[in-house]
């Protein structure tokens, strides 16, 4: 049996915004993230973190290089296929949660299965499981406005997990949270990692980055692997 392909494989992936003047937002780089890894991407603001997130999350296409996700060459895919791959294989967690304000926690989680071909009948049950998994089993009917910041982010994580992605892509997941809630969310991410989930956290906070088993720094659009602890 062949070993499983890396979840993320960057081969000289770079992105240059056409000018004038052209801006090299991400310099061509190589990066491999194996299944089950917990990788932190750190860098100050303006370093190219967002560009990296957009490329890794298939929200933007690199201008150079090849990006393989789960062994699929995403750079040659049609836009509609890129969308499908994104919807099925990447679970996003955002700094600002992006929960729909007029829907309950359960409905917000169910939304993640709308476009992936999950039969309607299964969705509520799976969403309930995902919420239970992040410790929100008792708040399924709550509206986002009644949830605390930490609960909102856990709800968003449940939404990211419910479609069973191969990669959990977190963009500043604790940026809007206080210390206590940050600790809860990070513990949750660690638990998920322990369960075998591949987690990629993009952050500017060193203490968050320290939770990862591996840290990649980004500065001025340049990726550089840091020494593993």
């Amino acid at each position: 049996m062949t070993p499983p392909a890396p979840v993320i494989e960057f081969r000289q992936v770079g992105l240059t915004y056409p000018g004038p003047p052209p801006v090299e937002a991400l310099r061509p780089c190589d990066l491999v993230i194996e299944p089950g890894e917990f990788v932190s991407i750190v860098g100050p603001s303006g370093s190219g973190k967002s560009t990296f997130l957009n490329i890794a999350g298939l929200l933007d296409k690199p201008t150079t290089g090849t990006y393989l996700l789960d062994g699929i060459d995403t750079t040659t895919l049609k836009d509609s296929d890129v969308t499908s791959v994104r919807g099925r294989r990447i679970g996003f967690v955002f700094q600002s949660f992006h929960l729909l304000p007029h829907r309950s926690a359960l409905e917000n989680v169910m939304l993640a299965m709308t476009y992936n071909g999950v039969p309607r009948a299964e969705r509520a049950e799976r969403a309930r499981e995902a919420l239970a998994c992040v410790g929100l089993g008792h708040r399924v009917a709550a509206m986002p406005s009644t949830l605390s910041g930490g609960e909102r982010q856990r709800c968003a994580i449940a939404r990211a997990l419910v479609a069973r992605p191969s990669l959990l892509l977190c963009d500043e997941p604790t940026g809007n949270l206080d210390t206590a809630n940050t600790a809860t969310v990070l513990r949750l991410l660690e638990t998920l990692h322990d369960g075998g989930m591949t987690v990629l956290v993009i952050t500017h906070e060193p203490e968050v980055a320290a939770r990862g088993s591996r840290t990649v720094a980004i500065r001025d659009g340049l990726l550089s692997e840091q020494v593993m602890r």
């Binding site: 929200l59 509609s80 969308t83 919807g87 996003f92 709308t114 476009y115 992936n116 479609a163």
Partner: peptide
């Protein structure tokens, strides 16, 4: 919301 839906796989 549109961005979120796109991230969740909406074309």
């Amino acid at each position: 919301e549109i961005g979120l839906r796109r991230a969740l796989g909406a074309r």
